[in-house]
Amino acid sequence: MSTPTRVALVMGGSGGIGRTVVERLAADGMAVGVHYAGNRDAADEAVKAIEAAGGRAITVTGDVADERETAAVFDAMEAVFGGIDVVVNAAGILALSPLATFDLDVLDRMHRTNIRGAFVVAQQAARRARAGGAIIGFSTSQTRMGFPGYSAYAASKAAVETMTFVLAREMRGRDVTVNAVAPGPTATAMFLEGKDRATIDRLMAQPPLERLGTPADIADVVSFLAGPARWINGQVIYANGGIA
């Protein structure tokens, strides 16, 4: 008897780390939902690449902070694939400024996506993930590193860590793990934007491994939590090369 295909939904899967996670989970043999908020072309490209490699994937869209739109994303996944095993929420907004001068309208927009959105996605995942599944959120190593300018962003991700800890206990008896990944400095377009060579070199020198992380480094951790890591639960995995 063949093993049923596992199904993964990656929120924010059209670009950055989320795109690499999509590709990795598809390579692991999962059918994948590629969620996007605004860049449909990038999501379509991801699906075409997965299908060209022999995998199964669809695009789904919706505002992560809108409970109706997010429920519709999960409905679409279940309609096509019959259920969901793994939910990865890589959707997020990064805005940087010293706390004393941070624009409160920007704060509200960022926290709507990073906190409310994380809550809404986790809520749907908690209701729908099948036994043997995994719910994986994204935090940041800035909750430990404390770089200036990151107060608002790190605060939003500290909320994700608390949700992870509590939801893992609320899922008792469901055989669904709940964890979060906290990347350190990772060479994505979003992270590198606005940084000069000297700043990048300084960041590369900080970890004992003396380099920036790559999206593939982070996707490896997600793959582990989504598959064989059944005894890791309620944890935040700091993927930062030892920087913190």
Rank of each mutant, 00 (worst) to 15 (best):
R197T: 04
V120E: 01
P207R: 05
F138E: 06
V166Q: 07
R116P: 00
S139I: 11
R172G: 02
Q123F: 01
I50L: 07
A205C: 08
A155Q: 08
F81E: 04
V221C: 15
L209P: 00
I84F: 04
E170W: 06
E45S: 13
K48R: 15
A125P: 02
F165T: 02
F165Q: 07
V64Q: 04
R230C: 09
V47S: 08
S97P: 04
A131P: 15
M190Y: 09
V166L: 10
A182C: 13
D175I: 11
M163P: 07
A31V: 01
K157E: 07
G137P: 02
E161G: 04
V86L: 08
T113E: 09
M145L: 14
A95Y: 13
A229K: 07
A154M: 06
A79D: 15
V60P: 00
V221T: 14
A216G: 06
G146L: 09
E161Y: 06
I218F: 06
T186G: 12
A26K: 02
V236M: 04
S223E: 07
A129W: 00
P148N: 14
A216L: 05
N114F: 02
R109P: 05
T3F: 11
G55S: 02
G194H: 14
V47F: 12
G149R: 08
G92A: 12
I200W: 13
E170L: 06
P208N: 12
I17Q: 06
A244G: 10
I135M: 09
A49C: 07
T162C: 05
G62E: 01
R24P: 00
G213H: 08
A43G: 11
E78I: 01
G117T: 11
R68T: 14
P148R: 14
T162S: 13
T199N: 10
A57K: 00
R127M: 05
S223K: 07
D28N: 12
L167S: 03
V88W: 03
